[in-house]
Design a binder for these strands. Structure first.
Lengths: 197, 197
DNA sequence: TGCTAAGTGGAGACCCCCGTCCACTTGAGG
DNA sequence: CCTCAAGTGGACGGGGGTCTCCACTTAGCA
């Protein structure tokens, strides 16, 4: 690949990440191209479809999520590990307007290996926190999806506001997650595949 | 207005409500017209713009919300009144995919009188519940908006799933709202005007 | 029954988006 | 410096959305 081409590709990716974060996934490809100082064709040469660009732009974020879970599993305090995952992922989501959409849109395509590993990691985290008596027994791993969707509802306000709102929401929820009091309505297996059906 | 015209208008409105609830606000006007058995022109004669149709289709829902608050104010048990408002409004929202979008989109246009009355009603409800010692002291009326936005994030899955998920979310949140334990991050004045800025 | 204004439906103007095509430009090795 | 494959940008096709225009139909009254 020629040097200038490589540089253009990188710039497109940077710009795409910025715009997706600022305005969500529905920014036109033309806008990305313009801001990156290239033509649309260049963009489509490197990324055969918009979906491909989105996927590429967000793999980094997905890796971060995975890392957050992995690290939390090494935390000696189970509750702190659990709490940190929720807090970090929700913060990531609040900072990036495209995050939720990218996540749900690419979910079926995420290599099942990755998906399973994430899920297994979080489930382990939940089990540890329950065993330590700090997480209520009727918490379900599916509730992570519930939190993600709820937190995703805050997108659409300016980022600083979204972050502040998200922090308060997460604080409320974590308080409710702590071991525990009354019975809840049953857990809902909110597989994200539902979102596109 | 001619009799058949009046009937057509009513049918359009019914169909619009159905489709907005099922598929959200971005159903094409043509789809509404087709399902109502009329042409697009008929539709645009009665409702000069799509926004007007949306507004008209949802005024009923807004009135219901208002009614829920008014009724809750007459409840002798302040906490039950408070809880009922949150539960009812969230249920309404979960059942109707277009509700959130319509609400946020039309918020600036809602006659300020109505807006103020709703706000005053809910604030009174909050105060009563605090005074009775059942609602945590650091709950802010702005948290209603927070709940609405979070609950709105559940739209996009099939209605039955959304309802079940919403019930669980609301149960979690209400548990967190009960008087009271740790300090929270500060309340965020989530005026809905922010959504379109 | 006949008249007429109100009502109607579908074609199409206009706009925005994704993705393609092609004539032109440019980096970099010999 | 010259060559040419790799790279580029803008015009364009196709699809789908909102809203308008206009020739035709019909309700309702005398």
């Amino acid at each position: 690949m020629r040097a200038d081409a490589r540089e253009n590709r990188a710039r497109v990716l940077t710009v795409a990440r910025e715009l997706f974060a600022e305005r969500g996934l529905d920014v036109p490809m033309a806008a990305i191209a313009r801001r990156a100082g290239v033509g649309v064709a260049t963009l489509y040469r490197r990324f055969p479809t918009k979906e491909a660009l989105v996927m590429e732009a967000f793999t980094e974020q997905f890796a971060v999520c995975q890392g957050v879970i992995d690290e939390a599993l090494t935390d000696p305090d189970p509750w702190r590990g659990f709490r940190t995952v929720i807090e970090q992922v929700c913060l990531l989501q609040a900072c990036d307007r495209g995050f939720t959409a990218a996540f749900t849109a690419s979910f079926p395509d995420l290599h099942s290996e990755v998906r399973d590993r994430t899920w297994a990691g979080f489930s382990a985290l939940v089990q540890r926190a329950k065993d330590s008596g700090q997480l209520r027994a009727d918490f379900s791993p599916h509730d992570l999806t519930l939190v993600l969707m709820a937190n995703g509802g805050l997108a659409g306000v300016p980022v600083e506001v979204a972050v502040a709102a998200s922090k308060r929401l997460v604080a409320y929820l974590l308080e409710a997650f702590r071991a525990g009091t009354d019975a809840l309505p049953p857990a809902v297996p909110l597989s994200l595949d539902l979102v596109l059906s």
